[in-house]
Nucleic acid binder design. Structure first.
Lengths: 135, 135
DNA sequence: ATGCATGCAAACATTTTGCATATTC
DNA sequence: GAATATGCAAAATGTTTGCATGCAT
């Protein structure tokens, strides 16, 4: 075992590549099942479990953003780095990334005030975008 | 059918009372299963389905706050009226209600700017409270 | 008496896991 | 060749639903 062989370096497999590609092609947040459907539809033979496992891994590694949809499913998307939130169209899934520096400041103040440490937050916005509102 | 008998007025049953009481006694957010366990433990014969149905109803009626925990479950708690968020201790569940007027303002601006309508948001904070950090 | 509420069990949807096999390193 | 990744199917979870019966109104 060499130092480049340390556990944690994921192996480069066909499936992993396919999955990462599928998520990148997706302009909206997609669930593991949706990614799986897409891949199968495109002729890939990936297993559903592999999609679940791989997406989790990529999200844990910070290569993907994971959110929990209002109905409880987990959805993934390739995002720009750094902490940010999302404004998502309920109808078409169109997503806008938003960063709210003032919120982060506010949270630090809140945490200090209430004596809480390691405060994390997750904030997503759901609305209807212009195009969908018009339809 | 009289005017006081309109559909929508839930019936006053023993189970409904027990469930509402159990949630009120709980100082933290609790899932349907937890409420059910508690009631069964206290000798009640309520069915799990009834607990699910009733909690959903109470939340829909605005009598309870419902949140989705980080691991995807739905949890309920009796809360003060009006829009607010929660700062929840990951360890003991202790909950502080917080309202962030500036956030609401910010959202309206954000919605207008991006052309989104009916923007909803859900925001909860998870941290470790002083007592739990000390332990 | 009417009909909503309950309880049970079965159905469901999503996600996780065990294990034999295939693959990468 | 050693160890991880995959695929499949089974299991686990959390929640919902169908239906016969009970209870509130």
């Amino acid at each position: 075992m060499t130092s480049t062989d340390r556990p944690g370096s994921p192996r480069h497999t066909r499936q992993r590549t396919e999955i990462r590609q599928a998520v990148e092609d997706q302009e909206t947040f997609a669930t593991a099942q949706e990614i799986h459907d897409r891949l199968r539809h495109d002729g890939s033979g990936v297993g559903l479990a592999t999609v679940y496992r791989t997406l989790q891994g990529l999200a844990a590694a910070g290569e993907l953003d994971a959110i929990r949809t209002p109905d409880g499913q987990v959805a993934y998307r390739t995002c720009s780095p750094g902490h940010h939130h999302h404004l998502i169209c309920r109808s078409c899934g169109r997503t806008v990334e938003v960063s709210i520096p003032s919120l982060e400041t506010l949270i630090r103040a809140l945490a200090a005030e209430q004596g809480f440490a390691q405060v994390e937050h997750e904030l997503e916005f759901y609305g209807t975008c212009t195009d969908c509102a018009r339809a």
